[in-house]
Computed example of a mutant assay.
Amino acid sequence: MQHSLRDVTILVARLVVGATFLAHAYQKWVLYGIDNVVASFGKMGLPAVAAWFTALVELFGGLGLILGVLMPVAGTLLAAVMVGALFTAHLSGGFFLSDGGFEYVLVLAAASLALGFSGSRFTLTGLFSGKSAGSREKAVA
């Protein structure tokens, strides 16, 4: 029972954090448009490749967390993008988000990293590798 509850809570966290990154990717690709994102990054002194990298990592990393595919890679890349945002856009604002600070990106970085290495039964990778819920509980018992 304890392992099932753990797997469900990790799944919920992956869905929420992954959906948050997908929403940010949607914002960059659809609402703002990638050209405007590139221009915005340029105003901060960042190259165009940083804007593209960020938008792609948010898209594919968010999907990776939601689906449970390549989770260590997704978690690490998402955390790296958030640490980059911390140092390039939010550090000067102090800690609190209300002041333009870094608390939000710091939490997303930590959550992405933790989820990327959390392991869980409820992943697409686990489904295709044959690690079913019943086989894991038998192995633990």
Rank of each mutant, 00 (worst) to 15 (best):
H24C: 00
M1Y: 03
V38S: 05
V16N: 10
Y26V: 01
R136L: 07
K138E: 13
G100P: 06
L91S: 07
P72W: 02
F95P: 07
L86Q: 15
L86S: 13
H3C: 01
L106F: 12
F117E: 10
G75Y: 03
V37H: 00
L97D: 13
S4A: 14
L108C: 08
L5S: 05
V30Q: 11
V140R: 15
A55R: 00
R121I: 11
V83Y: 02
Q2I: 10
W52N: 06
S135L: 11
G101C: 02
A80G: 10
K43P: 09
T9C: 04
A80N: 09
G62I: 06
A13C: 05
H3R: 09
E103M: 04
L5K: 07
S112V: 11
V37Q: 00
A50W: 06
A74T: 11
V140P: 11
L31Q: 08
A114F: 05
L46V: 05
G100C: 03
E58V: 04
P47H: 06
E58Y: 03
F102D: 12
G100M: 02
V57C: 03
V140H: 14
A80Y: 02
G93D: 10
E103D: 15
A133P: 12
L67A: 13
K131V: 09
G68S: 08
I34K: 09
E137W: 03
A114V: 15
F122R: 14
A50Q: 06
L115H: 08
